[in-house]
Design a protein around this nucleic acid. Structure first.
Length: 714
DNA sequence: AAGTGAGGTCTTTTT
DNA sequence: GACCTCACTT
C-alpha cells in the first residue's frame, strides 16, 4: 500500500534494503513523497516504531508539511517520531540536557538581529572602531566559524592583524553570551554537536533510539549538520538522505553541496539512487534546464525527463528598460487572466529584492493584485520583539539582549550615559546588565535622577516577573504590554504605521493565548518558555493575509520548492544575474547558474525570460549585457517575443550538427569505455570533425572526437 | 535625552 | 532610491 501510486524508480527507493541511502532527486521528481513513503514503509514492514524515527528538514514549513503528509499516509498521529528542523531538534536536545551542555536552564535564543546588536555591543566594549570592524562582518565571521564547528581556541590568526581582531571579537562575544545565557542559531547546532561528541552515554542513547534518520534537502546541510548526522547515525543506524546538488543555492550561508559527494565515502555501504522523471514541467522547459545546468562542472550528474509533451517554447523579451520590462510582464499576466487563467498561477522571480519595487508600481497601475514574499515576518517586527523582550527579561533577568532592547523603550529617562555606566560595571564584575543595575542602585553610583529612572525600570520588570511566574504565555504577554505601556507608546507613532503596530500587538496576545491552549506545543519545558522559543525559532508568516487570487513576486531563492503554471524570470542581465559579486569566481558562478536552474524548473507550462537594455539600480544607470545564461539555452527551444526586435539569434547556443545518428545533446548522460559515466557539456564541429566535451564523474572534463570515442548514451 | 541632517551602503535567507 | 548610522544641535 505504501508503494501504491509510485513509479518504478520511486518504488525502488522507498523499498530499498535498510541501510544508508542517498537519493539524487531532481526538481519535481517527487522527493518529499519518497521520503514520506519511506517512513511509512519502515513502519508498515515492522522495521521500527514511530519512536525510532528522526526526520530532519531546514524550514518549519517543510517540517510541518512532512508531518501532515506522514500522518495522512499512516492514518494516525506520528506519536513518538521526531520531525523537525535541525535547529528545532538541537534546541529540544539542549533543553533536555542543559546541564551537560553547559547552559543555564532557562537560556534564551538570539535571532540574527539580536545577534548583530550583541556583536555591536561587544565591539564597542572592546573599544574597537566600528567602521574598521563592522558588526555585520564580525557576525558573519562568527557564524561561519561556528558552522564549521570552530571555537575561538581552535582559530589561528596566522599573524594577520585583522583576523586577530575578529577572533578577539568572537571570544568576547562568546563570553558575553555565556554570561547572559544567550544562544544564537549556530550555537544551537554547535552545542548539540558537542553534546553528542562529549557525552558518550547520551549519544549512545539517541543512537539506540533513532535507528532511522531521514534528511530532506541534503545539499543544504553545512559541515556541522553533516558532522552531527554522522555522530548520530554511527555504525548501526541508517541515514536516508534526499537532495539535489543542482539546486544547492545556499553556500553563502554555509551549505556544503560536497556533502552529497562525501556521503558514499562516509556512510558505510551507501547506495545512490536517482529520480529523474519530472512530473511538473513540459519537455521544453526540462530540456532548457538540462542544457543550462550542463555548463556546471561540479555535479553528480542527472538529466530530467518527462512523459508529458514538449509544450510551448521559452519566450524571451528584450525590454527597453525596467519599466518596459515590468509593463510587458503585467500585460502578459493580464492576458493570462483574460484567457481564463488565474493571477496566482503567475510568478515573477528576480535575483535581488530591490527589483520588486518597479514591478509592484506597474502591477498596481495595471490593477493586478499581487503578493510579495519575503521581508519582515511576524516575530521579527520591532513591536513584537519589544513586547517579548519584556517577557524574556521578566523570566530571565540576565538576558542582556532583552535588557538593552527595552530599557528605554518607551523612553523613561535612561540614556546613553546611564547605559554606558551599566555596561562598564557589568564587564567589570563579569555579570549581566541586570546585576550591574542592582549594584549601581545599591552603591548609588549615578546621579539621583538616573537612579530613580533605573529604580522604576527594575521595579517594573520585577512586577511583571511576579505576574508571569505562575501564568501562561497569554497572561504574560498581557502583563508585559500593560506594564511596558507599549500600546500607548506606539499609538504616538503617526499614520498607519502606529495603527498596524497596535494591531500586531493584539495579534501577539492572540497568538500567545492560542499557544497556551495547545498542550502539544509545550514540550517538557513549560508553556511560557516554549512560547518564547517558538517565537525565536519560527518567525512566522511573512504576511498573515494570504489573499485570494494574487500574482506572486519573490526572489529566486524563496521560490525554491514551489511551482507555478507560468514563470517570469526578469532581469536576465550580466551583473544582475549572474550577480556582479558572483561572476568572478567559478564556484560562485556555478551557484548562480543553479539559481537560474531552480527558476526554470519552477514552471509547469510556460517560462518567459526578460532583460532590460537599460536599467536604473541604486540610483545609477546601467547598460548591461544580456545574461550569459541566455546564451546557454539551446536556440531551438527559444522564441523571441518582439517582432523585429534587436535580439540577435546569435544570443542562443546553436545546437551543433552532430554526425548523423550520433545526436548527442547538451546535458545528456553518456558512457565511455575507459572514462565511465559523464555529461555532455559542449558540442562542436560537423561530420567526422564533430567533437564533444564531456565531464566525466571519475576522469574530469575531456574533449572527444565522436568518430573515435565510441560514446554510448547512458 | 531626544530630535535633525549628512554620509555611506546596497545579493541571496532560514533558523 | 531607501535605509541605517553617526555627529551635531536644542
Amino acid at each position: 500500500m505504501v508503494l501504491d501510486g509510485l513509479n518504478a524508480a520511486q518504488r525502488e527507493v522507498v523499498a530499498a534494503p535498510a541501510g544508508n541511502v542517498l537519493v539524487l532527486a531532481g526538481a519535481g521528481s517527487g522527493k518529499t513523497r519518497v521520503l514520506v513513503h519511506r517512513i511509512a514503509w519502515y513502519i508498515q514492514t515492522g522495521q521500527t516504531h514511530p519512536h525510532g524515527i528522526l526526520a530532519v528538514t531546514f524550514t518549519n514549513k517543510a517540517a510541518g508539511e512532512m508531518r501532515g503528509r506522514i500522518e495522512s499516509l499512516l492514518q494516525h498521529p506520528i506519536g513518538g517520531m521526531w520531525v523537525g528542523t535541525f535547529h528545532g531538534i538541537a534546541h529540544r536536545l539542549l533543553r533536555a540536557h542543559w546541564q551537560e551542555a553547559g547552559l543555564p536552564e532557562n537560556f534564551q535564543i538570539l535571532d540574527s538581529e539580536d545577534q548583530q546588536r550583541t556583536v555591536r555591543r561587544v565591539i564597542r566594549g572592546l573599544e574597537l572602531d566600528e567602521s574598521q570592524h563592522p558588526p555585520r562582518e564580525a557576525q558573519w565571521y562568527i557564524n561561519a566559524q561556528k558552522d564549521e564547528g570552530l571555537r575561538p581556541q581552535h582559530l589561528d590568526d596566522r599573524g594577520d592583524p585583522s583576523l586577530r581582531q575578529m577572533i578577539r571579537i568572537y571570544r568576547a562575544y562568546e563570553e558575553h553570551c555565556a554570561r547572559a545565557g544567550l544562544v544564537d542559531f549556530a550555537e544551537l547546532l554547535l552545542r548539540a554537536h558537542e553534546l553528542f561528541r562529549e557525552q558518550k552515554e547520551r549519544l549512545a542513547h539517541y543512537q539506540q533510539r533513532f535507528r532511522h534518520v531521514l534528511v530532506d534537502e541534503f545539499q543544504d546541510t553545512n559541515s556541522l549538520q553533516y558532522a552531527w548526522l554522522r555522530l548520530l547515525v554511527g555504525h548501526d543506524g541508517s541515514l536516508f538522505a534526499v537532495g539535489d546538488d543542482d539546486q544547492s543555492i545556499y553556500s553563502f550561508r554555509g551549505a556544503r553541496m560536497e556533502n552529497m559527494q562525501r556521503f558514499q565515502g562516509d556512510f558505510p555501504a551507501a547506495k545512490l539512487h536517482r529520480l529523474e522523471q519530472n512530473y511538473r514541467s513540459t519537455g521544453v522547459i526540462l530540456r532548457a534546464a538540462n542544457a543550462l545546468i550542463a555548463h556546471n562542472a561540479t555535479r553528480l550528474g542527472k538529466e530530467l525527463w518527462t512523459a508529458a509533451g514538449d509544450g510551448a517554447r521559452v519566450q524571451l523579451y528584450s525590454a527597453f528598460n525596467e519599466h518596459d520590462e515590468a509593463r510587458f510582464v503585467a500585460d502578459r499576466i493580464a492576458a493570462e487572466r483574460e484567457g481564463g487563467g488565474r493571477y496566482e498561477d503567475c510568478a515573477i522571480l528576480y535575483r535581488v529584492s530591490a527589483q520588486s519595487r518597479v514591478l509592484e508600481e506597474i502591477l498596481m497601475q495595471s490593477g493586478i493584485p499581487y503578493r510579495v514574499y519575503g521581508g519582515l515576518r511576524f516575530y521579527e517586527r520591532a513591536e513584537i520583539k519589544d513586547a517579548l523582550a519584556y517577557v524574556r527579561l521578566a523570566v530571565f533577568r540576565n538576558d542582556d539582549a532583552a535588557f538593552e532592547r527595552i530599557v528605554n523603550t518607551p523612553p523613561r529617562g535612561i540614556g546613553q550615559r546611564t547605559m554606558e555606566h551599566l555596561r562598564v560595571t557589568a564587564r567589570a564584575q563579569a555579570g549581566s546588565l541586570w546585576e550591574a543595575a542592582l549594584a549601581t542602585m545599591r552603591d548609588k553610583m549615578l546621579p539621583s535622577r538616573a537612579l530613580s529612572a533605573l529604580d522604576q525600570f527594575l521595579r517594573l520588570i520585577h512586577g511583571i516577573g511576579e505576574q508571569v511566574r505562575r501564568q501562561g504565555p497569554g497572561e504574560a504577554v498581557a502583563a508585559a504590554l500593560e506594564a511596558g505601556a507599549l500600546r500607548e507608546h506606539y499609538r504616538k507613532e503617526p499614520g498607519e504605521k502606529g495603527l498596524s503596530r497596535i494591531e500586531n500587538l493584539d495579534e501577539l496576545q492572540n497568538a500567545a493565548r492560542e499557544f497556551e491552549l495547545d498542550p502539544e506545543l509545550h514540550g517538557e519545558i513549560g508553556p511560557l518558555q516554549a512560547f518564547l522559543a517558538h517565537a525565536a525559532l519560527e518567525s512566522g508568516e511573512t504576511q498573515a493575509d494570504a489573499q485570494a487570487d494574487c500574482a506572486q513576486l519573490m526572489t529566486l531563492h524563496s521560490a525554491k520548492g514551489l511551482e507555478f503554471r507560468q514563470v517570469f524570470l526578469v532581469g536576465m542581465e550580466e551583473g544582475l544575474f549572474p550577480h556582479q559579486h558572483s561572476s568572478q569566481d567559478a564556484r560562485q558562478l556555478e551557484e548562480e547558474r543553479r539559481l537560474c536552474y531552480v527558476g526554470l524548473t519552477r514552471a509547469q507550462r510556460r517560462v518567459t525570460l526578460t532583460y532590460a537594455q537599460h536599467r536604473r539600480l541604486h540610483g545609477t544607470e546601467f547598460y548591461p549585457q544580456p545574461s550569459r545564461f541566455l546564451r546557454e539555452l539551446p536556440a531551438e527551444l527559444m522564441e523571441d517575443v518582439r517582432v523585429g526586435g534587436d535580439v540577435s539569434r546569435a544570443l542562443y547556443a546553436r545546437e551543433a550538427e552532430a554526425p548523423d545518428g550520433a545526436g548527442f545533446r547538451l546535458g545528456q548522460r553518456v558512457l565511455h569505455a575507459k572514462f565511465g559515466e559523464g555529461i555532455v557539456l559542449n558540442v562542436e564541429g560537423y561530420g567526422s570533425q564533430a567533437r564533444v566535451q564531456v565531464n566525466f564523474a571519475a576522469a574530469g572534463s575531456k574533449w572527444l572526437v565522436l568518430a573515435y570515442a565510441g560514446l554510448q548514451p547512458a
